[in-house]
Design a protein around this nucleic acid. Structure first.
Lengths: 221, 221, 221, 221
DNA sequence: CGGTAAACGAGACGGTACGTCAAGTCTTGAT
DNA sequence: ATCAAGACTTGACGTACCGTCTCGTTTACCG
């Protein structure tokens, strides 16, 4: 984890709105982040992570998080705006890779993509991954703010690494130079993700291979 | 979301299920579907539909449905196993097209697909469509049973129509004959759906066009 | 203290009130007393009585009453407006003597009053009596509604019995015929009650005797 | 209500107490009264007084006092043991007459007492007097320590002045020489006080007059 | 007269209880 | 027997204060 600044990351109030926040007269209190207990923060995040795995997101309660963390409920409400935010930050802390992500590059884009996609299929089959990620996605559907955070903090770094691999393929002449890489990524991953998330079909390695093959046909120069 | 009730299924209308069930000694009640009040059923479904649009799924309550429908809570619990089931059946009743769906076929698959995709983009931008469909998808994520029902009752017929159009394109030599049409459909729709559902990017007509163009490149003979 | 319910009183059993209340439009719910659970009511009252004795009124909580009574909090909030009302009704149920109170009448008013007053002194010294009655009085000070109820339901019958004894003394020529009996009663009891309630002095049998002697001097024909 | 704090008393000014206390090893802090901020003390007392009038004692909170006084909560907890103590000292500071109280003495005890009692009746009717005094009395009921303090610091001086007037009447032969003046005072005031405090009856000037007349009958030589 | 320990304002903390809401179950007439 | 109505137990909600515990920041005493 990178050294934290005052903001701390998930702070919901620093939302999309332009936080000039001169506070013309709002009654709401503004907790001072510099006095925040790092110990409590970590205990809450840990408890949240554990409980999501144990109960699933829907059955998770703020009270249970507070109890497990040995923390007053107010300490949660003071720093997070919803159950979703807590859980999201818990995931964020977990998944934070620290530095850059580098994907394998054997020189053959098809080989590498098939490897990546098979890996993703395997990951989706892991029950420890399943519950929390489903929970997060279900929340994202109904919470634009969370969606934005998710894409900024969690998806973007990974996507950037994948696009870097595609750029390398472009340089190698394996993919057309004028292809929109964002679109290309969606073509590759969205079908897979959707099958898993919405259970619209079986997820096998063969499926992953077919998907890569078909997509690469579209991307070829 | 909850495991299940005695009924064993969401579809309350399929009374002819496996209801041989002479019940050897279980204490649980077995409501007799033949005595069911059709009027109450419709009032509940209508109330559910209205309330999902007004409040969203998360803020929808069984009590509110019962109140709006002028119905006792027990009448809902008697025939449905969860909030999700009620709402799903409400959608189902709404979207039921009765008979087959036929998509336009001008002879040029690119034209037709672009039209279809632009139409989908427009539909996704309609607020009246937004709330309930997001709600349904959020539930599907965490409820395999609901997912199965959704794909069987709602998605399948539409998908079949789309595949029929692709088959027509295959016959016209515009799409390779050996393409897996399910996969093709996913390539086309999953990126669009994901952008909307998970808010991973802007949804424009240009995007739809690019998506069709790129996908068709993959499908070409 | 609390606003009020339509009933306007603590005694929930007196359904025959003046309940003209056609309800012009208030949104508040009106629970139907005929469906009330007598078992829960009694459990609540019993728990309240016990807990006041154990903890005192100030440390008594609605939650504790509900827990001890094996009852949901809502069931308390549904039928009573405040902690004070519950406790008051608990006392009321306890102290209800059913029928009329008759005080001893030896023919000599001084003897009888001294006996009565000494009895009162003894009662005040009983710890089981102390906590709840202090609690009730403390509430009465700040709650006019409760005060009215107290005087109507609990004090009035006892006072009437005492006045009857004084009337007997008037007939016997031991007390002036034109004395205001309410005032006489206050002269007798208020000093004693105040010493106990506000702890303004020691409560002894000698004090009771002196008080009776002095008061009777004032009441003599 | 709570037993006590280290300080041992409500009167924070009596710094010279039993403060030999060299403290052999207790960990508890001993705030040094000489460093106490007189400004904060006054702000707290003022805030307490205002807030009791505005909200009543029950709804008064330490936090509100601290906020209104512009003071940290700890500053209150450092010097007082309970809400009751703060409020009591606030009253005490208010009512402190500085020096001795002298009551009118026209030579006729009945005239003077009726005047005094009517004045008391008027005082009781003043809403500014009502809230805080009721609050104080309600606390006294459940707090022996507060009761003792009240009688010592607030009641005693006034009672002494009244007894002085009665002594004067004894000297003038208007009251029997052997009358217990404490008892006499109670006979006079307790009925009035009780009517007001427990709302047991209307408080009028006529009532005050009758009370004086009847009591004097008991006190006559 | 400058250093230092206290008291101070502020407010975050672990808690308890509040009064409300809804869940799902159970009971009572009415149809 | 199902229905509308709604009281019931349960449990979580989000809020208000509790009394304790740091935080810097004055303040006043003492060396």
């Amino acid at each position: 984890m990178t050294i934290d600044n005052t903001n701390g990351g998930t702070d919901s109030r620093s939302g999309a709105d332009t936080d000039a926040d001169t506070d013309g007269g709002r009654a709401a209190a503004k907790p001072n982040p510099s006095r925040r207990s790092e110990q409590s923060r970590r205990a809450i995040l840990t408890a949240a992570r554990e409980l999501v795995s144990e109960l699933g997101f829907a059955k998770l309660t703020i009270e249970a998080i507070a109890a497990r963390a040995g923390v007053g409920k107010q300490t949660i409400y003071r720093w997070w705006g919803s159950k979703g935010e807590v859980v999201f930050e818990a995931f964020l802390a977990l998944s934070d890779p620290g530095e850059g992500i580098v994907l394998p590059d054997t020189g053959d884009v098809e080989t590498d993509l098939k490897y990546l996609m098979r890996e993703t299929v395997a990951e989706f089959a892991d029950p420890a991954f399943e519950a929390p990620v489903r929970a997060l996605n279900a929340e994202i559907i109904n919470d634009p703010k969370l969606a934005r955070l998710y894409h900024e903090k969690m998806a973007a770094p990974v996507d950037e690494a994948k696009k870097e691999r595609l750029r390398s393929a472009q340089r190698a002449g394996q993919i057309a130079a004028d292809v929109d890489l964002d679109l290309a990524l969606e073509l590759l991953y969205a079908p897979l993700y959707q099958r898993w998330l919405l259970r619209s079909g079986p997820l096998t390695e063969e499926y992953a291979d077919s998907l890569v093959a078909l997509t690469l046909k579209a991307l070829r120069p």
